[in-house]
Amino acid sequence: MTESEPAPDIAMWGASGSGKTAFLAALSIALNKAETNWKLVGENQASGAELIKLRNRLLDDRTFPDSTESLTYYNWLLIGPPEYHRQWWRPWRTQPGRAPRIRLDFLDPRGGLYAESQASVDKEALVSSLVRSRGLIYMFDPDRESRVGDAFKHLDSALNEVAAQMLAGNEYADGKLPHYIAVCITKYDDPRVLTLADRWGLTEPDLNDEMRIPRVAEDRAREFFHRLCRHGRSHNAEMIVDLIETYFHKDRVKFFVTSSVGMYIDERHRRFDPDDFLNVIDDPHRGLMIRGPVRPINVMEPVIWLGGMLSSRSMRSGR
């Protein structure tokens, strides 16, 4: 079946439980909330059904998606608002133009697949999809890193395999992988993560946000990532930033501090409360429960960034 699959444009990467599927689930919610007029649709029946299922999971069931058990494909289309053109002879009227479209062919692997040493059909498919893709979303879970500390191992082994396939030839003379990579620090809503950002003085309230949710500024996300890596359980984690920047062009790496579900905001006060922002609480029956409204943070941004980068690049290279 693999042969006939179109090449995934954006692939996801991250350890088990790092929130890959939750991120996808939050994506369409984020697009709705942002009032950007972007929308996400399934390119085929299975992907469409899955999109609705994932969204319902967060919004109606208020729980997180089950852990991905086998390599899953999502073929989605991100459709933007039509661009309006003004005609010089009738400048007071606008004409709707073509809506921009970004293909999102996500490949969602079970987290453990990256770390598996032995070759398997799934793993080959995964690595080949990474090779074919030009956009990567790398999910870094600070909570997992502080408890398990295997991010470096995952990244290193997968990068090695991808690099071995791509850099062996002469196609990439500069010795770097051609991907754009959005490094997403996940679970920003977790007190253990937010507290660290706060303690390290990396947060600042967004004055445009009436809820005053503290944000890590775009230009400080890399620093946050770096410090989280140093804070992690494994000494190797410190090398992750180096590893990324060794394999990828530095200007094609962007860091995002993300949260799929966002912070809990008490409806009565509608303000961020540093004492009570926990939005993911333990559910008495099963796993975790989303407590309040889902307000994704920086979920749409990496995708739109990658989409923008890939489409401008494809225009240049004629890909």
């Binding site: 977790d190 007190p191 253990r192 540093p274 004492d275 009570d276 926990l278 993911v280 609480i281």
Partner: peptide, 15 residues
């Protein structure tokens, strides 16, 4: 607790 902490228990709604 009175405020959320690392154990991820939400604070008392009445504080």
């Amino acid at each position: 607790p009175r405020r959320v902490g690392r154990d991820r228990v939400p604070p008392c709604p009445l504080r």
